[in-house]
Write a protein that binds this DNA or RNA. Structure first.
Length: 162
DNA sequence: CCCTGATTCGC
DNA sequence: GCGAATCAGG
């Protein structure tokens, strides 16, 4: 009689709690990428995208995507020949990644402007979460530190928040 | 080459 | 409903 289906944690919330959805919308409104939102909230990228799709918060219309898409019926799913997908090569020279980005001037979403870095600061409360607020680069919504994080140029690491 | 977005399917 | 897997494009 092993019928344990979801008897994992006693206090396991259904993932997308109102708090999380609030963050999701906030980050999405801030113009962050799905990967950024996912890493900030603490979920997978697909989870964010899936939730956005369910909430119909996708930037592109489903019809447009579908028009571009030509998925007929069965696109050779995970049945027989399964592709090795993208294998990430191991990094032998792991950088210390010492890039302490100091955000001394935090600002809220409403306070965001051209003079404030739009990097979200994830907080455990999520109610008073704010943004970096540093001086961004010329024409860039982020400061020099978060510029690298916002764009994947130079560094492949995207885990440092703050 | 890698990454991002969106859809589809299984649980 | 949620998330992994998958596909397609940049």
């Amino acid at each position: 009689m092993i019928a344990n289906q979801q008897i994992l944690q006693p206090t396991l919330q259904p993932t997308w709690t109102p708090e999380r959805i609030d963050q999701l919308k906030s980050y999405f409104a801030a113009g962050l990428s799905c990967r950024d939102i996912a890493v900030n909230i603490g979920v997978s990228r697909n989870a964010v995208i899936g939730k956005l799709s369910r909430l119909n918060l996708t930037r592109t219309s489903p019809e447009e995507r579908r028009a571009r898409r030509k998925r007929s019926s069965h696109p050779a799913q995970k049945s027989t020949a399964k592709q090795p997908f993208q294998i990430r090569h191991a990094v032998y020279d792991q950088e210390p990644d010492d890039a302490p980005i100091v955000s001394a001037n935090h600002c809220s979403l409403l306070e965001l402007s051209e003079q404030h870095c739009r990097w979200p600061i994830s907080t455990p409360g999520a109610e008073d979460f704010c943004f970096c607020g540093n001086t961004p680069l010329g024409g860039m919504p982020y400061c020099s530190g978060h510029y690298r994080l916002a764009y994947q140029v130079g560094s492949r690491h995207r885990a440092a928040r703050g």
